[in-house]
Computed example of a mutant assay.
Amino acid sequence: MDKSPPKNSSVTVADVARKAGVSKATAARVLGDYGTVSDRVREVVTAAARALGYRTNELARSMTTGRSGSIGVVVGDIENPFFSLAVRGITDVARQAGFTVILSNSGEDIDAEKAAIRTLLSKRVDGLIVSPAKDDDVEHLHEAVRSGLPLVLLDRGSDTLAVDTVIADDRHAAESITRQLVSLGHRRIAYVTACDTPDHTFRTLQDISTASVRRRIEGYLRVCEESGLSDMGKWVRVGAVTPDQTRRIVTDMLQSPQRPTAIIASDSMIALEAFKVHRQLGLTIPDDVSLVSFHDADWTSVTSPPVTVVRQPVYDLGATAAELLVKRLNGATETARKVVLKTEIVERASVRAAL
């Protein structure tokens, strides 16, 4: 006589054990993916669970194994194609390793980031991947590490956190593109970023709390100095947080008596708004102003003209971060690694020699 429960009831481990003809403890080991059982028993229990429509109770499994089977990810702006692609790399690797991803968006706000970390910890995630909004305000991340939770930093490192970190070679990329613009005769080269200061004015590198952007500006300023261009800090424009703010910043620059001959956009969202402003003002790219964007977003290759970009290995940044975290979750104990992935300049038609 079939003792399996009716299909409309909640199927338990005991029901699966009964149908498979094994003990409840054995069924629990198979369904919870812990302990050791023979391949034959695993097949029998799995088949019984499938036939009954059994669903794993994740809370019960986490209490048994100490694992939730999930990792928490906190990024700056999920609307930014950069982070969207990086998260795709994370989720692909995590899924293959048997982990689900719980994603939080900080909006580049440090308080929102701290709240997200608290929420993820309360959900008992097994590890964290974080792109810190401010690398000088990371005590909440130190607390997570002290609690024993594996942490990997994505795109933005921190000198005070001895954890696995995956970044792009932003400084070198900025040096390369700035050097190219200088070689083409450009002297008024603007760098536009969403990073901001209390009075919306850049003065020193310490004003920039986002590590990846600080590395880029450092590379940009270094080449300018080596090329004999003085006082180039005035060409670093901060506060391009929203499309409206970006359009205002770019419009002010392009309508000034000494407008820039080239603009480096710190991300593709800024570059898109800059591109729109040029059209609205009746200016031509690159005849009037050259434009370069960090991140090879899809739109940059289909505009007229297509935009020269610094192509970052965005998917690989996310995938590598997830791989490092999975290794930690599987017991890796080696010294924290800092992985630096190479970028490349993709030359299109938005840059020309300065007139």
Rank of each mutant, 00 (worst) to 15 (best):
R171K: 14
V87C: 12
H142P: 01
P313D: 07
S147A: 15
G107L: 09
T303Y: 00
M269I: 05
D137I: 01
R61T: 08
I90F: 08
L31M: 12
Q180M: 13
T204I: 04
G239S: 12
V37E: 01
S68W: 11
S158R: 08
S38Y: 04
N80Y: 06
E226R: 15
D109C: 06
T308G: 02
A321N: 07
G53K: 01
V163A: 07
I263C: 09
K276D: 11
L281A: 03
T261C: 06
A115L: 14
S122P: 00
V30E: 12
M63Y: 02
T12W: 07
L221D: 10
S10R: 15
G282L: 02
D39E: 15
A17S: 05
A115K: 15
D196C: 04
L324E: 12
M232R: 13
I249C: 08
V223D: 07
I78G: 02
G219R: 09
V340L: 03
Y220L: 10
L120H: 10
Y54W: 15
R29I: 05
A86S: 14
R222K: 15
T165E: 10
T56Y: 01
P198H: 01
A14I: 10
S106R: 10
R187G: 12
E347D: 10
E218F: 00
A211N: 10
A194Y: 13
S227D: 11
K327R: 15
V250Y: 00
V223P: 07
S304T: 10
D231Y: 01
I117C: 11
G89E: 10
G127H: 06
S212Q: 13
D196W: 10
F294D: 04
R348L: 03
E226P: 02
A168E: 11
G127S: 06
D77Y: 12
A353V: 06
K19C: 04
L128N: 05
R352G: 09
V30K: 10
S147D: 14
H295N: 15
H186G: 05
Q96S: 12
D155S: 15
S158M: 09
R348M: 02
A190Q: 11
Y34S: 00
G233N: 11
A112Y: 05
E108Q: 14
A336L: 07
R18A: 13
K338Y: 02
D155N: 15
Q258W: 04
T320I: 06
A116Q: 12
W235M: 11
I217C: 03
M253S: 05
E218N: 12
C224E: 05
R171M: 14
V277F: 09
